[in-house]
Simulated assay, not measured.
Amino acid sequence: MLAAVVAVVGMNAITSRYERTITREQLLAPAARQPRTDLSDGLNYLLVGTDRQGATDGPDQRSDTILIVHVPPGMRQGYLISIPRDLLVAIPPGGNGYGGGQDKINSAYEHGGGGPGGARLLSATLTRLTGIRFDGAALVDFAGFKQVIDLLGGIRMCVDTEVRSIHTRTLFTPGCQQMDGARALDYVRQRYDLPGGDFDRQRHQQQMLRAVLDKAGETNLRGDPVKADRVLRAVGGSLTLDTNGVPVEDLVMALRSLPADALSGLQVPSYPQTIDEISYVVLDNGGAGLFDAVRGERVPGWAEANPRWVTRL
Rank of each mutant, 00 (worst) to 15 (best):
residue 29 A to Y: 01
residue 29 A to W: 00
residue 29 A to H: 06
residue 30 P to N: 05
residue 30 P to I: 03
residue 30 P to G: 02
residue 31 A to G: 08
residue 31 A to P: 04
residue 31 A to W: 11
residue 32 A to N: 04
residue 32 A to G: 06
residue 33 R to D: 06
residue 33 R to L: 07
residue 34 Q to I: 06
residue 34 Q to V: 11
residue 34 Q to M: 14
residue 35 P to N: 02
residue 35 P to I: 04
residue 35 P to R: 08
residue 35 P to G: 07
residue 35 P to Q: 03
residue 36 R to P: 05
residue 36 R to N: 12
residue 37 T to R: 00
residue 38 D to T: 11
residue 41 D to Y: 07
residue 41 D to I: 03
residue 42 G to L: 05
residue 42 G to K: 08
residue 43 L to G: 04
residue 44 N to M: 06
residue 44 N to Q: 10
residue 45 Y to V: 10
residue 46 L to A: 09
residue 46 L to M: 09
residue 47 L to I: 12
residue 47 L to E: 00
residue 48 V to P: 08
residue 48 V to T: 12
residue 49 G to S: 13
residue 49 G to A: 13
residue 49 G to W: 13
residue 50 T to K: 04
residue 50 T to Q: 05
residue 51 D to K: 01
residue 51 D to Q: 00
residue 52 R to N: 15
residue 53 Q to A: 03
residue 53 Q to G: 14
residue 53 Q to S: 08
residue 53 Q to P: 05
residue 54 G to H: 04
residue 54 G to W: 00
residue 54 G to Q: 08
residue 55 A to I: 09
residue 55 A to D: 13
residue 55 A to L: 09
residue 56 T to N: 15
residue 57 D to T: 09
residue 57 D to A: 11
residue 57 D to C: 01
residue 57 D to K: 09
residue 60 D to W: 03
residue 61 Q to K: 14
residue 62 R to G: 07
residue 63 S to F: 13
residue 63 S to L: 13
residue 64 D to G: 12
residue 64 D to K: 09
residue 65 T to Q: 05
residue 65 T to G: 07
residue 66 I to Q: 04
residue 66 I to S: 01
residue 67 L to K: 10
residue 68 I to G: 00
residue 69 V to Y: 03
residue 69 V to K: 04
residue 71 V to A: 05
residue 72 P to M: 09
residue 72 P to N: 10
residue 72 P to A: 05
residue 73 P to A: 14
residue 73 P to Y: 10
residue 74 G to L: 04
residue 74 G to Q: 00
residue 74 G to M: 03
residue 75 M to S: 10
residue 75 M to N: 12
residue 76 R to V: 10
residue 77 Q to V: 09
residue 78 G to T: 06
residue 79 Y to D: 06
residue 80 L to H: 04
residue 81 I to T: 07
residue 81 I to V: 13
residue 81 I to R: 06
residue 81 I to D: 02
residue 82 S to H: 06
residue 84 P to G: 11
residue 84 P to T: 11
residue 84 P to F: 05
residue 85 R to P: 11
residue 86 D to T: 03
residue 86 D to M: 08
residue 87 L to Q: 01
residue 87 L to S: 01
residue 88 L to K: 15
residue 88 L to F: 11
residue 89 V to W: 07
residue 89 V to P: 10
residue 89 V to Y: 10
residue 89 V to R: 08
residue 90 A to W: 15
residue 90 A to D: 15
residue 91 I to D: 05
residue 91 I to W: 08
residue 92 P to F: 05
residue 93 P to N: 00
residue 93 P to R: 08
residue 93 P to H: 01
residue 93 P to G: 02
residue 94 G to R: 05
residue 94 G to N: 09
residue 95 G to R: 13
residue 96 N to S: 15
residue 96 N to Q: 14
residue 96 N to A: 15
residue 98 Y to E: 13
residue 98 Y to P: 15
residue 98 Y to G: 13
residue 98 Y to I: 14
residue 98 Y to F: 15
residue 98 Y to S: 13
